[in-house]
Nucleic acid binder design. Structure first.
Lengths: 210, 210
DNA sequence: GTCTATATGAAGATAGAC
DNA sequence: GTCTATCTTCATATAGAC
């Protein structure tokens, strides 16, 4: 029975509250209430609410950097790619508070802006590397303009799909299903895949729909 | 030389400030400062900041409803479609403050949530109607699953492209270029168009790239 | 319709005891 | 490390004069 440090409990509770209620709506009082600690105690561990946000952002940045560190010359299989997408969606969903009120959050913590954009570009680059691998393996037929547009579209979708999805189906809240997002990403790429790639994806897609 | 009513000046200035600074960062004091009127005067015209937001939302809702009122049986040309997309992007951009901090805004003005979702669905339906027109005219070949995924993707892109685009290119602020968005939408549909449709789009695309 | 002055209340943050 | 009490700041909103 390991005792979790208060500092980490604060980070976990904050992340969870930020995601469910939106970062601007979460006060330091709410966080300390949730943990049954005093606001003063919270401020002993973090000198400001912004510090909590920044430390969470650090984690996000680190996890994303690890995930997007795609080797340029490897032959990626569709299964590997699907796994990658699942991890990606899971990670974005875990830090979705960043995306939900992006302008507001980035305006109040403004050193984050550059770093956020860097991550965005890293995502696009990652997709490009992956697609180029598919192209080398002749799984994919796509010209450079199309590739550019596709990778941007994949990045956009990776960022906003979760928000968009929960918004359109209000019913089942909190249940962010990463599968639907992965399915949507696959559909974006589908037209550019060679026939056997398309069949494979069609088969994988059954899992998401069912 | 017509004198613009204070009430309307407040609405215009608010919209402009909301878009550039983010709605949560705009205080009633800032709005009245911008117009060189007193805060008291502002509250004479609107009983709360929320009322301003709601009235702006009303306009957005109305404009969108008009725009998305697509006849179900008409034969839409690609030119008409391109024009439609331009109007759509222009309208979304004019009310982009809604999208920039979506969760925050919708949580504070909660009757907006349902209405916002309704507009979203109307967008998807509109795209479906348009694509079905293309399919009837045999400009487009697409099955029902693909159509569903495509229309959702078009809706997502219509909503978030502007934010995404300004975020990835920080350099040229304030200059939201609708053309790039339209181009991106066309690219999404391109794979499903018959050959002469693809040629037409390729030609139109030159305008956006150049 | 517009102003000045002010009330209200909430959130972020600190001080000092235990 | 944790608590209670308190301070500061600032945005929303109101009152009442002009």
């Amino acid at each position: 029975m390991k005792k979790v440090k208060t500092r980490d409990r604060i980070l976990n509770a904050s992340l969870s509250l930020f995601n469910s209620t939106g970062e601007p709506n979460v006060t330091t009082l709410l966080i300390s209430d949730e943990l049954d600690i005093s606001p003063g105690n919270l401020y002993y561990h973090f000198k400001s609410k912004g510090d909590i946000v920044e430390e969470l952002f650090d984690s996000y940045e680190r996890e994303m950097a690890d995930l997007l560190d795609v080797p340029g010359d490897a032959d990626i299989s569709l299964d590997q790619f699907s796994f990658f997408l699942h991890l990606l969606f899971e990670t974005v969903a875990r830090y979705r508070f960043l995306y939900q009120d992006l302008v507001n959050v980035l305006s109040r913590y403004d050193q984050l802006q550059t770093r956020f954009r860097r991550i965005l570009n890293k995502k696009t680059d990652g997709f490009r590397t992956l697609c180029e691998s598919f192209r080398r393996q002749q799984l994919m037929t796509i010209n450079d303009d199309e590739l550019q547009a596709l990778c941007q579209q994949l990045t956009l979708t990776a960022c906003y799909w979760s928000s968009f999805d929960t918004l359109s189906h209000l019913d089942d809240r909190n249940s962010v299903d990463p599968g639907r997002g992965v399915y949507q990403m696959m559909y974006l790429m589908l037209p550019y895949f060679a026939e056997d790639g398309q069949d494979q994806i069609a088969m994988m897609s059954q899992d998401y729909i069912g």
